[in-house]
Design a protein around this nucleic acid. Structure first.
Lengths: 180, 180
DNA sequence: TAAGTGTGTGAGTGCACACTTACAAACAAA
DNA sequence: TTTGTTTGTAAGTGTGCACTCACACACTTA
């Protein structure tokens, strides 16, 4: 026995998050995920129930990592006020998405929410993150809303590559955003 | 001669925006666009340079419509202050995306920005809208940034279907957003 | 009416990819 | 050693889709 199936699943999910993040659900062949994970395509199909099952599982892993990072960030808050905790969470998130995979995966997942299973996975992910932010920071509805609005703005900045655009409108949109 | 090529192109672009909005670039076959436009697939390929050319042209049409609506909204502003003009623009945008096609198309376009031609089309679209908002409203960088951040939040709300979710976290994210 | 031009399509072609099946090797338990 | 279980793959199969090409019809102009 070279490895347990459970260990393989973890490896495959890491590869899947990266691969789907770059080229999306429909344009990413399962062979690409398998190759990145170093195993055969056939075995990926045995470990997960089809390409859709793989994507949904990858979504779970993606939001799992985000939630964990934000929770850790909250622990490092210097004070206990909602503003301070939210700021610490934002900083932790900014660090996490430096490699872009987790951010781009969210964009890709949002784009295929016409598939009900994926829509549900996205809701579950945001439910987990949003409830934690609200409860842990003790923030108001408006503060939580603002937190996510500027998070979503990051998606636009990164996908459109606005950090590289020197024009005034792009500078306005990227101003003060912690390094993507 | 049943129709001019230029008139056909307009018809096809309307069909393309709707079709791509729902199922995205890779999952939308050109046959679906052709069927929606009421012409053959072969003729779509004559009118546009490949599927990519069609998508890029559709992106142009999408942002064109958004820009036009926002410009019209600005004209209806009750006062001249940046806040009032931004509010009028936001209202016009909210009306425009009631049918969801234009909003969903933006999400789909952002998801395929790994294709350089599409990334450039997205940048061109936001360049046009953002510069107009900034110039016409006379808004500060921070105000423009906020305007787009909450616009992007709408993308999440609609794709994840959060209006239908009665839980507190979802209510917090959707609070005060003009009817999507 | 003949030739030319623009509009339109039916019928392919070739390839990429989701998913399956038959089979083999490693390991465990009897 | 034999039997069973789990890990793993090579080699298909069928289908959907981007794109092409030969051809036809509508309309204009000389």
């Amino acid at each position: 026995m070279r490895s347990t199936a459970e260990a393989r699943r973890v490896t495959v999910l890491n590869a899947a998050v990266s691969a789907f993040a770059r080229t999306g659900f429909h344009a990413t062949p399962v062979t690409a995920v398998a190759a990145a994970a170093g195993i055969s395509e056939a075995y990926v199909f045995r470990l997960f129930s089809g390409k859709l099952g793989l994507f949904v599982a990858a979504a779970g892993a993606c939001f799992e990592r985000i939630a964990t990072a934000i929770e850790a960030g909250a622990e490092r808050a210097t004070g206990g006020s909602p503003e301070e905790v939210l700021d610490a969470m934002g900083g932790a998130y900014a660090e996490l998405i430096a490699d872009r995979d987790l951010l781009l995966f969210q964009v890709q997942a949002q784009a295929v929410t016409d598939i009900p299973e994926i829509a549900e996975a996205v809701r579950a992910g945001y439910r987990r993150v949003a409830t934690f932010v609200q409860d842990r920071a003790g923030a108001s509805d408006a503060q939580v809303q603002q937190f996510f609005a500027y998070g979503q703005l990051c998606h636009l900045i990164v996908t459109a590559g606005l950090e590289q655009v020197p024009e005034p409108w792009a500078r306005a949109l990227t101003a003060g955003i912690r390094h993507p």
